[in-house]
Every structure is written in C-alpha cells, then in structure tokens.
Design a protein around this nucleic acid. Structure first.
Lengths: 123, 123
DNA sequence: CCTGGTCCTGGCCACCCGGCCAGTTTCGCA
DNA sequence: TGCGAAACTGGCCGGGTGGCCAGGACCAGG
C-alpha cells in the first residue's frame, strides 16, 4: 500500500476564527507525528470550524415534509415520491408547495439546494 | 468576551478511515490544551477526512456546462439561464441534457445534488 | 482535408411541475 | 368542546422540462 504508517499525518486548517486558528496551530505544531499542511499541500484531514452565526436557524419542517424533501434530494419525481410514501401525487405536491414556501425556494431544485445549504439535509 | 483562552479546545472527529482516526485520536489525546469531544458534545472545531475513493473522479465538464450547472444550482429555470448567458432556451436544454448524461442524473434536481456530492459545485 | 469536439439553434411533443380552487380526517391543545 | 395544525385527496391549467429529430459554425489535431 502507499500508506506509510510511520509518516506524519498532514493536517490543513479551515478556521474562520483567527484566534482559534492561532491557538490550534500553536498546540498542534508541537505534536510529534503530525504536521500542518503547507499552502496547497494535500492533507490527510482538515480541521474545520465555521462561524456558527451563519447557520443558526434550522427551519421548522414537519416529518412528512422531511420525507418528501429527502426523496426530492434523490431526484425523485412527484409520482415516484407518491409511490414511495404510499400517498397520492396531489398530496406530494401539497407538501412540495409547503417546502418551497418554508425554504423560500422557487422550485424543487432550489429547495434542495437551500435545504443542503442550511444543513436541513445531507447530500 | 465569552472566550476563555485558558479553556481546552474541544475537537470532534469525522473520519472515514478508521486507522487514521485511531492514530489521530491517540496523538491528540496527549496534547495539553485540547480534548476530543464526547458524543453529541458541541465542538469548537471538527477534523474531517472523507474517503477519497468516493470523489476521485471530477467529471469532465465543459466551461459552458459549468456555467449552466452553477445557475441550475441557484434554482434558475432554463429561460432564466438562457437570458443570463445570452443564449437560447434550446441551447440551455442542450447543455442541461449533456449534464444529465455526464452526471448520471434523471433530472435537474438530481444533477445538482450529484454535482454537489462530487464536489463539482459548492452549495 | 477531414474528422471530432464544443457550442449554438430550431421544431415537435409527452410529460411534469407548481399554483389555484375545493374538500376530508385526525390529532393535540386550550 | 370547539379550534387550529397537520396530513391527505381531488380537479384544473399554464408554463416548464426533458427527449427526440434536425442543422450550422468554430477550432485543434490527425
């Protein structure tokens, strides 16, 4: 294998908070067996800390809306969703309409993108 | 400020490679000033290492297809994309068709989801 | 020179989507 | 015991979507 288990583990940092980044860099710089990545260098793992103020509001979606949303993210049509959930196409469209409303989206593609951005669903 | 610069930094791990996770946990466990998060505990930062085998192949998309894809991810309709790029709706549909083909998607929503999963676009 | 790839355009058509109207049941909460 | 929220269903319809056919222009490489 190309993996050398004696090699240093290379870590890259993606941290919004500069103070936190400095503290982490200082701490990790003294640990034997791992190393911070040089700019552009491929890292085995990345340490991420995003500004939490960006995504505080998780939208209030009902269970059924979450079901529909998940299938939408899989690219399923209203008809397929209806079959999958054992409900009529009209009901699916009803839930999709609610989702477009709550997610402030103009269409199902936009809805999935918004939901993914806000962490409501995982792609 | 609410930040206590003497407190430990809490890190959580999201690593697909179990061996790598073990090595990192062992290394970081002995570092004074930081600590690994308990399950469910809020962490100041997250160490992420996704299985690279999942997204090795960045699909070969033409520049125009990337343009169309980006606008699709914004929820734009074919008509809006056409206006935005200064081309006809037919041409947009042509590129969308190519995208559906290359991304192995059944529809525009699926295409955006696949593209996001493979890192072709950023939501 | 000719082939292949990309980009562009047109028409046609079945189907899907989203918004509108209307109604039902079930449930928990005041 | 009402009352609203959630879930579900129906019909209707304009516009959007995706698949198919066809074509032309441009440019790099064989």
């Amino acid at each position: 294998m190309s993996e050398d288990r004696t090699a240093e583990i290379v870590l890259s940092l993606e941290i919004d908070d500069a103070a936190l980044a400095d503290r982490l860099a200082a701490l990790l710089g003294n640990v034997a067996g791992l190393r911070l990545a040089a700019p552009g260098e491929h890292a085995a793992a990345t340490i991420i800390a995003r500004d939490p103020r960006i995504s505080p509001a998780d939208i209030a979606l009902t269970q059924r809306e979450l079901d529909v949303l998940a299938l939408m993210a899989e690219g399923a049509s209203n008809k397929m969703i209806a079959r999958q959930l054992g409900i009529s196409v009209h009901t699916v469209k009803f839930h999709v309409g609610s989702l477009l409303d709550k997610l402030d989206a103009t269409g199902r593609t936009d809805a999935v993108a918004h939901a993914a951005r806000r962490g409501v669903i995982e792609l």
